[in-house]
Structures are given as C-alpha cells and as structure tokens.
C-alpha cells in the first residue's frame, strides 16, 4: 500500500473517532445531570472537535484533491466514515456515556503519548496539543467510574451494565490492518503492544477502585475502519449533516 494513501486513511480514522465522539458528547448540551457535568461534557466535546479539525484538515492536505475539513465531515456518508464503533454508540444513561468516554480515554491517552514520537511532524504536533487535553479527560471519566461503581447499588449496577454493553467495542481499538502496518513500518504510528498494556493497567486499576468487574474478552466487534457501522451512526450523521445536505455550501 502506498504511504500517502495509508496516511490519508489514518488521518480520517483519527478525525472520525474524535469528531463522532465530540458530536455524541455535544448531544448532552443542556441535558447534563448537573450544571458542572453539562459544562464538562461540552468542554470535552470542544477539545475533541478541535482535534478532529486538525486531523481532517491534514487528511485533506495529504489527499491533495482540494477537499476541506468541512467536505470530509459533512459530505461523506456512513460507509465512508472510518471511526471505531465504540464512539458512535448512543449516549444511553450517564453511566453509559461515562463508560464510553472512559474506555476511549484509557486508549486515547497512551496512544497520543506514543504519537508524540511520530516521524510525521504534523501528527506529532497534533498529539502535542491533544495529549494535554486527553490527560484531564481520562481523569474526569475515571473519577466518575469510581463514583458510580463505588456509589449506590443502583449506580454500581448501571455502570457494570454499561461496561458489559460496551466492552465488545474495545477490541477494535487495538486492531491492525494494511493501513496501520504500512505506517508503522515507516515510524509514523506507534506499536500497539505497549498501548494495550497501558490500557489494561488503567482499566484494571480504575475498575478495582470502583469495585466493578472487568468484562471477559468474548466476541469483539469490528468493521468500523472499513466503513461497516452499527445502525446508530447513520441516524447520527443524518442529523449532523442535515444542513449541508439540504443547503449545499451553506456558510455561517
């Protein structure tokens, strides 16, 4: 596989991961359980949106066909989206939202730390900004996992259920394919081995403190990187892309 094509695909994946999660968190705006959490989730959404813009701008440059960040965000359909399935899952109750963030953050932070050493200067620079943000994202979601898990019987049960429902989507975070190995050989993306170790360490430590059980690795969902998604993504994009679809080229 050609290096440039692999780099384009990788930027899309990272852009779609951050953008889709950002949109999901944005859905909480005005609906948070308390004011501070409403602001926390929208702050996180904003950080992720900024990261998505960086990745999608860079994807457009790498592709060299003149597509802007907006073209890539608003004019690809769900089969063209290559985010992992974890981030597109509906928000559910607050335990589901937090568990989704926690599992994502536990992978995202070590991934970004490793991306700092990328031989691609732009990816290293994007990680340099994002790693500071991902650090307090993980702190936020970890604190809530503990609060739910070690809270009341009801909150414990809901957090355990959320982990159970979402665990199947964690396998995809550590998958490799031709795109990934091509870039890894060029020193552009990191070895996933140490990232998986860091993920396991974080998950085990936080869940132990939260008195929650780590789900068994059984069936792991896959396909997001190839544009095969759960039914939820299409509905989300239908809402997110509505304006550009109905009024092509509309601007603020």
């Amino acid at each position: 596989m050609e290096l440039n094509e692999a780099l384009f695909q990788f930027c899309l994946r990272r852009g779609d991961d951050t953008h889709v999660l950002s949109h999901r968190l944005g859905e909480w705006c005005g609906h948070g359980p308390v004011l501070e959490e409403d602001m926390a989730l929208t702050n996180r959404a904003l950080d992720l949106l900024g990261q998505a813009r960086n990745y999608l701008q860079y994807a457009g440059q790498v592709e060299g066909k003149g597509r802007s960040e907006d073209d890539l965000a608003y004019l690809r359909n769900e089969r063209g989206y290559v985010n992992c399935k974890l981030v597109e899952q509906p928000n559910g109750d607050y335990a589901h939202t937090i568990a989704k963030c926690f599992l994502f953050d536990a992978w995202h932070l070590p991934f970004l730390k490793a991306q700092l050493d990328s031989k691609d200067e732009q990816l290293a620079a994007i990680a340099g900004k994002a790693v500071k943000e991902a650090t307090y994202h993980l702190r936020h979601s970890s604190e809530w996992m503990v609060r739910f898990g070690d809270g009341t019987e009801e909150s414990h049960q809901r957090a355990q259920q959320a982990l159970h429902d979402l665990w199947t989507f964690t396998g995809e975070l550590f998958e490799t394919d031709e795109v990934y190995t091509t870039l890894q050989q060029a020193g552009i993306v990191p070895d996933l081995g140490p990232i998986k170790e860091a993920f396991d360490r974080t998950v085990n430590e936080v869940l132990a403190e939260a008195t929650l059980k780590r789900p068994e690795d059984e069936f792991m969902a896959s396909g997001g990187r190839k544009g095969q998604h759960t039914e939820h993504l299409g509905h989300m994009l239908g809402e997110m892309q509505f304006l550009q679809r109905a009024h092509p080229g509309a601007q603020w």
Binding site: D47, G50, Q51, N54, K129, A130, E133
Partner: peptide, 8 residues
C-alpha cells in the same frame, strides 16, 4: 498558536 485545540 492555539491555546486549546478546539478554542473557538
């Protein structure tokens, strides 16, 4: 240089 990545 941006302060925060997503700072509007």
């Amino acid at each position: 240089t941006p302060t925060y990545t997503g700072c509007p």
